[in-house]
């Protein structure tokens, strides 16, 4: 109801960037293109499987925001942790998890990353230092701060990346976390994925300070505003931020980004104009931007990119086949993993 009443306001000053753009090598251009395209194709497939009733409950797609996790992960090293909310499929792909395990979790099968017991919003991987997958808005932020705390405590030089949305950024525990993170100079990068909406609420309707890069000001945490649709800008900012966090302590990156799809599969997204979505797609699409550079710079031919797309589609289709053919968890699993046996 409130969503419909949203004032028709032009999204203002989107995509002004921190200014810094990384100079990508040919290899980096191609890798970022591949990584982002994998996310997009995966999410499209997830949407399709949802439509076919193979995925249930809530399912939040990342389409449009691909440059954010892709650029960030290019700046991380082995052992760095990450944690996010329920819009998490891409974050898992970006840390290198097998699309099959992710898709099978979406379909709730025993081959899923959480044996089918977590679902789309609750997935984890110890191995890849990915700590979820959280359904409660904002809850991942103090937990990420605790991971950073454990890094410092253990004397490791790893950092944690805690992602949150523009909506989550208004949760009290975020500021409790900022305060402790700075008080104890914990090695953490807070990434605010400002996709302009929290469900149906445009940023300006929920936030008194809409410049999220300034949300750390009263804690003396520096912040940078980044064009989150340009993977080179994301990478440049992430590289600086990760170094800063390793040496000094917390830092905030506000990623100006946009989701093309509704909040979840059942959101008709009537709180924004088609025009607005169309304009973002046409002018700022993260994948098209790289594609254009690749073709203009003759780093690959149109046919090469088509082949790449085919390869990616095959991987995604394979994951979907696995996810729909894999059996459901054994009924006995109902009773496992409640407590560790002692």
């Amino acid at each position: 109801m409130a969503a419909r009443a949203a004032p028709k306001k032009k999204p203002t000053k989107k995509n002004q960037s921190s200014g810094k753009i990384a100079n990508f090598s040919e290899q980096e251009e191609l890798k970022s293109y591949y990584d982002m395209l994998l996310i997009r194709r995966f999410e499209e497939k997830a949407g399709q499987l949802y439509g076919m009733g193979q995925i249930g409950g809530f399912c939040h797609l990342y389409i449009g925001q691909e440059a954010v996790v892709t650029g960030i992960n290019m700046a991380l090293k082995e052992g760095d942790q990450s944690i996010t909310a329920y819009r998490d499929h891409a974050h898992m792909l970006a840390v290198g998890l097998d699309p099959k395990g992710i898709m099978a979790e979406l379909t709730g099968r025993e081959g899923g990353l959480s044996k089918g017991k977590g679902g789309s919003m609750h997935m984890f991987s110890r191995e890849k230092h990915f700590y979820g997958g959280h359904g409660i808005v904002g809850a991942q932020v103090p937990i990420g701060t605790g991971l950073a705390f454990s890094n410092k405590y253990n004397g490791s030089d790893n950092i944690c990346v805690a992602y949150m949305g523009d909506g989550a950024s208004n949760q009290g525990q975020v500021y409790e976390s900022f305060n402790m993170a700075k008080l104890w100079n914990l090695p953490i990068v807070y990434v605010i994925e400002n996709n302009q909406y929290a469900m149906g609420t445009a940023v300006a309707r929920a936030s008194s300070q809409t410049d999220f890069s300034r949300r750390g000001v009263s804690f003396n945490i520096p912040g940078v505003k980044v064009d989150g649709m340009d993977v080179r800008a994301v990478y440049a900012a992430a590289d600086d931020a990760v170094k800063y966090a390793r040496e000094n302590g917390p830092i905030i990156l506000e990623m100006l980004t946009y989701r093309y799809r509704g909040h979840s599969m059942s959101d008709p997204a009537k709180y924004r104009t088609k025009d607005e979505v169309q304009r973002m797609r046409a002018e700022h699409d993260p994948i098209e931007q790289v594609k254009k550079r690749i073709l203009d710079g003759r780093l690959a031919s149109e046919d090469d990119l088509k082949d790449m797309d085919k390869k990616i589609r095959a991987i995604v289709t394979e994951s979907a086949d696995y996810a729909t053919n894999c059996p459901e968890p054994d009924p006995s699993e109902l009773w496992t993993d409640v407590l560790i046996e002692t």
Binding site: I143, T145, G146, L147, F149, S150, Y153, G172, S177, N179
Partner: peptide, 26 residues
């Protein structure tokens, strides 16, 4: 003070931080 830590009055935050620290092996 590394192991006996005064927190701000931030229950939700430090409970979550504690959970994260536990995930982190503490």
């Amino acid at each position: 003070d590394k192991r006996v830590i005064d927190t701000p009055i931030t229950e939700h935050g430090f409970a979550g931080l504690g959970v994260g620290a536990a995930f982190g092996g503490l």
